[in-house]
Write a protein that binds this DNA or RNA. Structure first.
Length: 492
RNA sequence: GGCGCGGUACCCAAGUGGUAAGGGAGAGGUCUGCAAAACCUUUAUGCGUCGGUUCGAUUCCGACCCGCGCCUCCA
């Protein structure tokens, strides 16, 4: 089944395919590692992960490159303030970022590319631009892209800049430029700043040139898909196109995907608004990694997602239902045979699920048939009409659901444990929710012992004691469920 | 001001020219020692407002109201 994906460049939903018939070559703009990643960052990376996984599910091989911006003005400023080299400053944040991806089960791209490891490629590109007359150097040594040299500028973001007057807007850069809209390719080092000594002078790369150089390095002059957050569309991606196509005279990327920003409580997330959350903030508040993942992927990427704590709780509960159902299938005893009605239900779910994902990654629509199947199967189990072959068919559907959503397999304990460890080291223990601490304070063995004691009490019909134990555990976030197949407990 | 997106039940949210998926939450019921889980029933004659096109619009067109984003290297 082909994947249809909205293409910012064409302004419509186009089929996404590998133009050379081999692996689909995609480049996704990664983080600037100057701080811990926030949930807005992760919504973007998560949605790109949905794309990756959907492609895999559709048997479309992918070669995915993501940059790590480990040099920029903020990094230089912060490292200088801390009195350490920039690499020493960025390393922990890069590590934290990769760890956070793991927490959210975002698959690693085939290739990570650090800006600082590709300076020669950027210099080369700037030289080519200069040779083509599209770049110029100012007196203090910075290099700029000459916007006038690229008439197509604005084709991605559909902006018509021709009417814009030079100087109409005061630019943040202090360097003098030919035209206000010209953007930096290379920034000359100011006294005391980190710099690279290169053929085009001493300085550091501009942000945009990094992506052009690295994308071309790993994917070629022309590749299939370029993705990133909506804010990158202009000017970042527009600039990438200008730089790249001015040199190659080929389309840089054919397909462009932009993930919309999330809102928090209806407002754009920002530190000054007080609605700013890193992934780690949420883990310390006691929310599970899987719930955060589901909350951030359930609204399709082209829509604004309003992030709320209610939404997180909703996601938690939805996952719980799926996991309970999954366990029921795995642990239950079913008679041999196959029930045609359920076989059909499983097929319908699979078809509906794939169709929704293939249709511009409609994750919201994709969930529905899965839950339809859950209800049908639960009903059948209650009526003892679910047979072994049905169980297998349904498990297969759940597996393909999890191949993209990845929330049923429970691995929430590890990220939470890691976050608590980090909080201790980082002096953030004060931010840990008390409920989380009490929930984590009980070991599995302790709980097992209490559960066993309760089961015994029940056998002796000492219900007062049994309920007492259940209540005590409940207060600490441990839920006990009796079932035909025995007692099970879980951390809420 | 320019560009763009959205307003669907208590909340989140999909969707189509023919009369509204799914999730969460709530209520009642079945089951249970009691719970939990699961299942059943239930919660929009209604899809921002007002017009228009149409046999028929939530879905197309227009106007208006409201919210949001981008236009400052913030994903």
């Amino acid at each position: 089944m082909p994947l249809r994906l909205f293409n910012t460049l064409s302004g419509q939903v186009d089929e996404l395919f590998a133009m050379d018939g081999k692996a689909l070559r995609m480049y996704a703009c990664g983080p600037t590692v100057y701080d811990y990643g926030h949930i807005g960052n992760f919504r973007t990376f998560l949605q790109i992960d949905i794309l990756r996984r959907t492609l895999a599910l559709l048997s479309i091989p992918v070669r995915h490159v993501m940059n790590i911006t480990d040099v920029d003005d903020k990094i230089i400023r912060n490292a200088a303030a801390a009195g350490i080299p920039i690499a020493q400053y960025t390393a922990p944040f890069e590590q934290a970022f990769l760890e956070d991806l793991e927490t959210l089960k975002v698959q690693r791209p085939e290739q990570l590319a650090r800006a600082t490891e590709h300076i020669p490629r950027m210099v080369e590109l700037i030289q080519k631009l200069a040779a083509a007359g599209a770049a110029y150097q100012t007196e203090e040594g910075s290099w700029y892209f000459r916007l006038a040299a690229f008439p197509d500028y604005g084709k991605l973001s559909k902006k018509d800049l021709s009417g814009m007057e030079d100087g109409a807007r005061v630019d943040v850069d202090e360097y003098e430029k030919d035209s206000a809209r010209d953007f930096a390719l290379w920034k000359a080092a100011k006294p005391g700043e980190t710099f690279w000594d290169t053929a085009i002078g001493r300085g550091r790369p501009g942000w945009h040139i990094e992506c052009s150089a690295m994308a071309m390095e790993y994917l070629g002059e022309s590749f299939d898909l370029h993705a990133g957050g909506e804010d990158l569309m202009f000017p970042h991606h527009e600039n990438e196109i200008a730089q790249s196509e001015s040199v190659t005279h080929k389309p840089f990327a054919r397909h462009w995907m932009h993930v919309r920003f999330l809102l928090v409580d209806g407002r754009k997330m920002s530190k000054s608004e007080g609605n700013f959350f890193t992934l780690r903030d949420l883990l310390l508040k006691g929310y599970k990694a899987s719930a955060i993942r589901l909350a951030l992927i359930s609204v399709p990427y082209r829509h604004q997602l309003n992030f709320t704590f209610d939404g997180l709780i909703e996601a938690t509960n939805a996952i719980e239902r799926l996991r309970t159902f999954h366990q029921r299938l795995v642990n239950g005893n079913f008679a041999a045979g196959s029930n045609p009605a359920l076989q059909d239900a499983a097929k319908a779910a699979q078809t509906g699920y794939l169709a929704a994902l293939s249709n511009d990654l409609n994750t919201a629509e994709a969930r529905a048939p899965i839950f339809d199947l859950v209800r049908a199967a639960n009903t059948a189990i209650d009526q003892q009409q679910l047979l072994v072959a049905d169980r297998d068919a349904i498990l297969a559907v759940l597996a393909s659901f999890d191949a993209v959503f990845d929330v049923i397999q429970d691995s929430d304990a590890e990220p939470t444990r890691r976050a608590l460890e980090w909080a201790e080291k980082a002096g953030r223990l004060a931010d840990v929710a008390p409920e989380l601490l009490s929930r984590e304070s009980l070991t599995g063995e302790t709980i097992d012992a209490l559960v066993a004691e309760r089961t015994l009490a029940k056998k002796q019909r000492n219900f007062a004691r049994a309920d007492q134990i259940r209540n005590e555990l409940a207060e600490k976030g441990i839920v006990i469920e009796d079932s035909k197949d025995g007692v099970r407990w879980k951390r809420k």
